[in-house]
Amino acid sequence: MADPAATADVQDFVKFCVPLTGFTAFDLYATDMAGAYLDTARRQVGPERFDTFWTAWKQAVTGGGGPQDLAPTHREVARALVYLWYTGAWPRLAPAAHADLRREQANTEFVVAPEAYVEGLVWRTFHGHPSGAKPPGFGTWGVRPPAPPEVEELRAGLGVRDVAYRTGLDAEVSPEDIPAHLLPGFRSGRHVPPSEVPVATVPGTIEEGRV
């Protein structure tokens, strides 16, 4: 679907954000944030560099590929875009990508707008709602949440190709056995923005709490 009220740029942006985010165009439009996110990404990456990235991503998708076809810096931009859709914030980039893009902005995380936080998609991945908004009602927290939809079901619903939506990993991550480095670890303090939190350590590898 495309929102007829949206500009051609935004329509194009949403269309190719579907495979990147795993949410339908309907979901993405419903956030009412698409235009703001496109602006943010252009400003953060630089308009020309963003165009180059965007062309590369579209080529990958139309050529039957996925994120693994992107060069490292473009991969990082793709990640930032997904982070933006999922949380409403622009993250801190890998310093190498930041340097490669010759960004003039400070490389720190910021929330795009109060509404952006509220529209973050991450909450929907686990049948939640943003903390402090869209309250589901008295007592709803006592109800057992449904299981997350399987990848096959999601792919079908999105109408995306049967390609790997992952980089650097041989196989789809098994929910039974999630590698620690895809999980967040302990923050050294509350000042650490979410995109700078270190990855988790494998349970039990550090002598800790066993007395």
Partner: peptide
């Protein structure tokens, strides 16, 4: 390493 799109959505369903 990293996951995107439907695989990301599925992973977060469990990891969160």
């Amino acid at each position: 390493d990293g996951v995107f799109g439907p695989e990301l959505r599925r992973l977060l369903g469990s990891s969160v």
